[in-house]
């Protein structure tokens, strides 16, 4: 079962073209519009969609060249069909469907979350198989989800997800209020290295017993973001210095704590 498949992903701010043969990755070309969003502190959907349309054909050419395969050799075309930014997704879906029809190849629409888990099926030589069932924790600027994967193509269950901001969004927002650049993740990580993660005890969302009843595997980061904002405002109002490294480290710790606690709980249950 060594099918040659080309995948197109345009759900957010990166135009991704991947080519795999079975579980071997042959090409993974990514064209990012991140720099165009940086000054807005977050992804602007229309800017992302415009960038996808400009990037998709060059990315396709590059991926085929890197994989050293021709379009005729492909066995199938796959595309991220959602969830994601509608305008951005539509570029990939339009291109993928047309490519499949023009080449007379089968077409597969893939759920974005399952696509992320699918990345873990890729193997380098000598590596073992992915063991199933497994719990998958997806964390990025777009998602915070816990999945139970029994079978990648037939049985993936969404156990829980964020009920407000994704973890990455919380990093972006907290970075802004600490005066750090976008994207927040790497910058908070950088300054947190100098800080004390136990300096401030920020709230852990949806971990109280009453929340766990209804939201055992769900996440919430907007309360945490507000707590950080309130903490910073109080210091500024009092004219006290804001210990950015300590706050960054404590915030990061609060996020990591909830993510790991819920993921481990899902594995045990």
């Amino acid at each position: 079962m060594n099918h040659l498949v080309l995948g197109i992903e345009t759900s957010c701010d990166e135009t991704g073209i991947g080519i795999v043969r079975g579980t071997t990755l042959l090409a993974n070309v990514i064209s990012s519009s991140m720099e165009q969003h940086a000054r807005f502190g977050g992804v602007v959907p229309e800017v992302a969609a415009r960038a996808h349309l400009d990037a998709i054909e060059p990315a396709l050419r590059q991926a085929l060249a890197e994989a050293n395969v021709t379009l005729d050799e492909l066995d199938a075309i796959a595309v991220t069909s959602g969830p994601g930014l509608a305008g951005a997704l539509m570029v990939g879906v339009g291109a993928a469907k047309a490519l499949a029809v023009a080449l007379d190849k089968p077409f597969y629409a893939v759920n974005h979350l399952v696509g992320h888990v699918g990345a873990d099926v890729l193997r380098t030589e000598g590596e073992g198989q992915l063991e199933l069932p497994t719990i998958a924790l997806l964390v990025s600027g777009g998602h915070t989800s816990l999945l139970l994967v029994r079978d990648l193509t037939r049985d993936v269950e969404l156990l829980g997800e964020t009920i407000d901001d994704a973890a990455g969004e919380a990093f972006d927002k907290v970075a802004r209020l600490l005066g750090l650049p976008y994207p927040g993740g790497p910058h908070i990580d950088r300054v947190a290295a100098e800080g004390n993660q136990t300096a401030v005890r920020f709230p852990r969302g949806l971990t109280l017993p009453k929340d766990l009843e209804r939201h055992r595997y769900d996440f919430s980061f907007s309360g945490l973001k507000t707590a950080v904002a309130r903490y910073v405002e109080r210091l500024r109002d009092a004219g006290e210095p804001v210990p950015v490294p300590d706050i960054a480290a404590s915030f990061r710790e609060a996020v990591a704590d909830v993510l790991t606690a819920k993921a481990v709980a899902a594995c045990r249950d």
Partner: peptide
């Protein structure tokens, strides 16, 4: 734009494929 780009992306893909 969202609808418009579907057709333009599709046109790019067919031209590229052929």
């Amino acid at each position: 734009y969202t609808g418009l780009r579907v057709g333009i992306a599709a046109a790019h893909a067919v031209a590229f494929a052929r």
